[in-house]
């Protein structure tokens, strides 16, 4: 069986989801406490820390529709603004915030599946073209294929792959975000990856 990837594995690339966190800065928990005591600046600091990560997660889930992704990202931070007091220190703040994002994305898909959409009618089959090559894939054509293959997955599998591979959350953290068992994370992730690799094989006619 041949590799579905043309390029060599780049072992120098490391996922650094927390690279923006600086130990000299106040922790998320401190910022949330300050916000609950009336500090709007602390809330804005939280937005600064997480806006790109949350947007990236949502952008990936909604198949690179930027306008919808930004709108939903704003909803996540509005939800945080209204319900910050619900955050308990039992889990990491990032886990809590991503679970809000997950729910908002699921609601988006539920409501959009019920909604009559002229856009869907006129753009049927053109979804894959929504990806902006110039914006996203200057450096790697293979990445486009990977993203297109991932876009064919159901949303729950897309979420799990993104949280693991892009955000580098542990299986335990993913189970907290998605509110599922660790065993389900394990099996769903494995199944999703098999589907993607199989889809890439078909695209490349390398059966």
């Amino acid at each position: 069986m041949n590799s579905v990837f043309k390029g060599k594995l780049d072992s120098n690339i490391k996922v650094e989801p927390f690279k923006n966190q600086d130990l000299s800065k106040p922790s998320d928990k401190i910022l949330i406490d300050q916000f609950l005591n009336g500090s709007r600046g602390s809330y804005e600091e939280i937005v600064q820390r997480y806006k790109e990560r949350i947007f990236g997660f949502i952008y990936f889930q909604v198949k690179q529709h930027k306008h919808d992704a930004e709108d939903l990202t704003q909803e996540v931070f509005i939800e945080l603004y209204k319900k910050a007091a619900h955050f308990r220190n039992e889990s990491k703040f990032s886990t809590y915030l991503f679970s809000i994002a997950k729910n908002i994305v699921l609601n988006y898909f539920r409501s959009s599946s019920r909604r009559f959409s002229l856009y869907k009618i006129f753009h049927k089959g053109e979804e894959e073209k929504a990806i902006n090559l110039q914006e996203q894939y200057l450096f790697e054509v293979d990445q486009k294929q990977v993203v297109l293959a991932l876009n064919r997955l159901p949303v729950d599998e897309r979420q799990i792959i993104y949280l693991c591979d892009k955000e580098d959350f542990s299986y335990l953290q993913i189970s907290e975000i998605l509110n599922i068992k660790v065993g389900t994370v394990r099996s769903r992730l494995s199944t999703a990856r098999k589907k993607v690799i199989s889809s890439l094989r078909e695209d490349n006619h390398e059966m």
């Binding site: 490391k14 990236g56 952008y59 790697e140 792959i161 892009k166 580098d168 993607v196």
Partner: peptide
């Protein structure tokens, strides 16, 4: 490779 490709996903 799949993992690394996704890690490089930019938005």
């Amino acid at each position: 490779t799949l993992k690394n490709q996704l890690a490089r996903f930019e938005s």
